[in-house]
């Protein structure tokens, strides 16, 4: 497996703010990689370093096998980027911007350009200043998706899109994935990442705190169990990996470390299972687990 992006130990500070604090990130060629984190976690900074727009203070960065700072222009021909804040030139039309960006990248697929304009329902004759935020984002998306490139770097690309257009976007990314393109998708919309991404990296305060496939990540967390048993539950509380146990007669509710699931199920079935609901952890829970202590830590930060 080759890697489109390898970042290790990347640091970047602005004055006293550490935007990136030893970031490690690996994106395999051909995968759709979710880059998750709340606002201000360092996602955009990391992307800008990957694009050679910012220079990292320390650490290694490799993009498509090259150094994004030194070979920026050469590497950029092989990738397309959609910024989180899309600003267009007020007196250029959307169509002109799409063509211009495509040509500067080395060419557009004309057929796909027309197809994308139709799918995103975008009027290319309007001037930049008259587009809404969502429409400006569509201009950048069409320009990126219609380019023939190996890698797409998308920074919160759906933040201005309506749900209908989000759906179109998801289809487009699935198409890209079929074409074996690599996609780095930064987002804080969990359902989007859950639907699209092969692997996910969760970033927090400039560091990646969790990375892996969704099932790997789920493995690290807890499954919630609701069971109705034939008899009284027995010995559940003594099992390792059982949390928040709540027993009411023959009903049992608990959270189980996914690794201990098998042992818990045996114990439950010993009492006879009448009904069972087992819920895998949502990405949301994964995500919140990493940020819970942030929320708790907030006042402390404020005092400093």
């Amino acid at each position: 497996m080759t890697s489109a992006i390898v970042v290790s130990g990347l640091h970047k500070s602005y004055g006293s703010t550490h935007a990136l604090d030893g970031l490690d990130l690996e994106v395999a060629t051909g995968e759709v990689h979710g880059f998750l984190g709340p606002n201000g976690a360092g996602k955009s900074t990391a992307i800008r370093v990957l694009l050679g727009l910012l220079r990292g203070d320390a650490g290694e960065v490799s993009l498509l096998g090259g150094d994004p700072w030194h070979d920026a222009a050469k590497l950029h021909r092989r990738l397309a980027y959609v910024p989180g804040d899309v600003n267009l030139w007020p007196n250029l039309t959307g169509g002109e911007v799409i063509d211009l960006l495509g040509r500067l990248r080395g060419g557009l697929d004309e057929k796909r350009r027309d197809d994308l304009l139709r799918r995103f329902d975008l009027d290319p004759t309007k001037k930049g200043r008259t587009y809404s935020k969502g429409n400006r984002q569509k201009v950048a998306l069409v320009a990126a998706l219609a380019s023939d490139v190996e890698l797409l770097i998308l920074d919160e690309p759906t933040s201005g899109l309506d749900p209908l257009m989000e759906e179109v976007f998801r289809q487009c990314i699935e198409d890209e994935s079929q074409r074996d393109r690599t996609v780095l998708l930064s987002s804080h919309i969990l359902s989007e990442v859950e639907a699209l991404c092969d692997r996910v990296s969760i970033i927090r305060r400039g560091k990646v705190v969790e990375t892996g496939t969704l099932s790997e990540l789920r493995h690290l967390t807890r499954t919630s169990i609701h069971a109705e048993l034939a008899g009284a539950p027995n010995g559940i509380a003594q099992l390792p990996g059982v949390h928040d146990l709540d027993v009411e007669g023959n009903r049992v509710r608990c959270e189980v470390d996914t690794a201990q699931l098998d042992a818990v199920m045996r114990q439950l079935s010993a009492s006879g299972i009448k009904s069972l609901v087992a819920q895998p952890p949502t990405l949301e829970e994964l995500f919140l687990r990493h940020y819970e202590d942030d929320v708790a830590a907030e006042p402390e930060v404020a005092v400093r």
Partner: peptide, 17 residues
Amino acid sequence: SALRAEPLLATGVTRSR
């Protein structure tokens, strides 16, 4: 500062150009 340079510099255009 209007973030219009960024998308251009993320294409095959060098900074000097």
